[in-house]
């Protein structure tokens, strides 16, 4: 269900630090707020603290110091099972959760825990299965599914809980291009219907195409919190965080040095501005050739 708009931020993180029992300081003081209905990408190199941060949003990890408020309530004081009513979390590896012998039951596990029974349960599970294109496998053993399908099954098992917030840890890893697109389309649709989506990814093209806001985490700190287009202008920060611009953004920047400007971030827009520019050049060159004063006079 879409979150109720209360005016206050849905998630509020204040001076969050997390030190693992092994002694590693994974988060070194993070502050941010997330409003209902946002679509946020979390990026950064492996080990930067992306997963550690997002696991605080549903209480899987508790702050060492600082606070995380979910809809105004301190997550440190509530059990995960209760927070799970508001925040769904899809893990990176689907095999960490699949244990039923029938896909339907696997997807129904979360909603059942929330107390759903009967027709409503069936409806929810079936529509989640439909969303991830696994309706045909409804009564099959999830163990028979391919890895890509199991990944989507794990997504469906959280979708069926219809939480206001859905967090996904690398939702498209191990998926082919079509499957990735399909997953992102599902997330966009959910976002359109009012769900807050937070996804961790290494794929900068996904960020460019699907996120409205990016959190760049490096070495346990929130380095940049901005829309993707602004992030891409800070190439230095990206590089030092071990990331690279998506190809179209990089090409845009290179072309800007030649006076070709485009900022739509799509291949089509870039091709169009290059074509526009080259027709200008061709026109000028033909002028040059025809110029009676010769090339020297033109310069």
């Amino acid at each position: 269900m879409p979150a109720k708009l209360t005016g206050r931020p849905l998630i509020e993180v204040r001076q969050l630090k997390h030190i693992y029992r092994s002694g590693g300081e994974a988060l070194k003081g993070i502050a941010l707020t997330i409003d209902a209905g946002e679509m946020i990408a979390v990026v950064g190199r492996n080990g930067a603290g992306k997963t550690t941060l997002t696991k605080h949003f549903n209480g899987l990890l508790r702050p060492t110091t600082g606070t995380v408020l979910l809809d105004g309530q301190d997550t440190a004081k509530l059990p995960v099972a209760q927070l799970a009513r508001t925040v769904g979390y899809v893990f990176q590896n689907p095999d960490h959760q699949i244990f039923h012998e029938r896909l339907f039951d696997e997807i129904a596990f979360g909603p059942r825990n929330l107390g759903l029974r009967g027709d409503e349960l069936t409806t929810r599970v079936d529509s989640a299965l439909k969303a991830v294109d696994l309706t045909d496998y409804r009564d099959r053993d999830p163990g028979e599914l391919s890895r890509g399908q199991r990944k989507r099954a794990a997504l469906a098992s959280v979708l069926a809980m219809e939480t206001a917030v859905i967090i996904l840890d690398e939702p498209t890893s191990g998926q082919d291009y079509q499957e990735s697109e399909q997953i992102m389309a599902i997330l966009q649709e959910l976002n359109r219907r009012g769900h807050t989506i937070i996804f961790i990814t290494h794929d900068m093209e996904l960020v460019q195409e699907h996120a409205c806001r990016v959190l760049l985490i490096d070495d346990g700190k929130l380095v940049i919190d901005s829309p993707p287009r602004e992030l891409f202008r800070q190439e230095q920060a990206l590089t030092s965080a071990g990331l690279r611009l998506p190809p179209t953004a990089e090409l845009e920047q290179r072309l800007a040095a030649f006076g070709i400007h485009s900022d739509a971030g799509t291949v089509e827009a870039l091709a169009a501005s290059i074509a526009r520019r080259s027709s200008q050049i061709t026109a000028r060159d033909s002028f040059k050739e025809n110029c009676s004063g010769g090339a020297a006079a033109c310069q």
């Binding site: 899987l60 059990p79 099972a81 799970a84 979390y89 590896n93 959760q97 825990n113 929330l114 959280v158």
Partner: peptide, 12 residues
């Protein structure tokens, strides 16, 4: 990790 994944699905 498995424990967390199930807790995230409201398992007690």
């Amino acid at each position: 990790l498995i424990g967390q994944a199930q807790e995230a699905r409201a398992h007690d």
